[in-house]
Amino acid sequence: MLFAILLPGISMIFRGHVLKGILCGILHITLIGWIPAAIWAVASYREDLAEKRHRETLEFLARQQR
């Protein structure tokens, strides 16, 4: 998560969000835009974690029903 705060655009690109990462990187270039870019990257990171947990829960429930 520290990586998402320090380099928000690159962290989004590494997680597979290329276009969002480029836009976030452009926003990060300005000092004023760095704070919203960092918040956006952290929110995106947490959303990816939530989606992963959701998929794992669905897989677990599907295995339990068999």
Rank of each mutant, 00 (worst) to 15 (best):
39 I>G: 01
46 R>H: 06
10 I>T: 08
8 P>K: 00
4 A>Q: 10
22 I>A: 13
46 R>E: 11
20 K>R: 07
56 E>H: 04
9 G>V: 12
60 F>C: 03
45 Y>K: 09
16 G>C: 14
46 R>Y: 11
18 V>G: 02
32 I>R: 09
4 A>Y: 10
51 E>T: 01
50 A>C: 02
58 L>C: 09
4 A>V: 12
54 H>L: 07
29 I>C: 07
30 T>F: 10
15 R>W: 09
46 R>G: 00
27 L>A: 14
52 K>V: 05
66 R>F: 08
24 C>R: 02
26 I>A: 13
65 Q>L: 15
41 A>F: 01
3 F>K: 05
26 I>V: 15
57 T>K: 13
13 I>A: 07
31 L>E: 08
2 L>I: 13
61 L>T: 06
31 L>V: 15
33 G>W: 09
20 K>G: 02
8 P>V: 06
49 L>E: 13
6 L>P: 01
8 P>G: 00
63 R>W: 10
59 E>S: 12
39 I>F: 09
57 T>R: 13
37 A>T: 08
7 L>R: 06
50 A>I: 05
18 V>Q: 03
60 F>E: 12
9 G>S: 04
38 A>R: 02
28 H>L: 05
8 P>T: 00
53 R>L: 13
7 L>F: 15
54 H>Y: 06
49 L>M: 11
36 P>W: 10
44 S>N: 11
59 E>I: 15
6 L>M: 03
49 L>W: 04
40 W>R: 05
37 A>N: 02
10 I>M: 10
11 S>N: 04
21 G>I: 15
65 Q>H: 12
64 Q>R: 15
19 L>N: 12
30 T>K: 00
10 I>L: 15
63 R>D: 11
13 I>R: 03
40 W>V: 02
37 A>M: 13
43 A>T: 09
8 P>R: 01
13 I>S: 04
46 R>T: 03
61 L>P: 09
44 S>T: 12
45 Y>P: 03
60 F>V: 09
21 G>R: 15
1 M>N: 07
26 I>W: 07
23 L>I: 14
36 P>T: 10
41 A>W: 03
32 I>M: 15
58 L>V: 10
23 L>R: 00
17 H>D: 14
50 A>F: 03
60 F>Q: 12
2 L>P: 06
8 P>C: 07
34 W>S: 05
19 L>M: 05
40 W>I: 10
48 D>E: 09
54 H>E: 01
40 W>D: 07
51 E>C: 02
33 G>A: 07
52 K>F: 12
4 A>T: 10
23 L>M: 13
63 R>S: 04
45 Y>E: 13
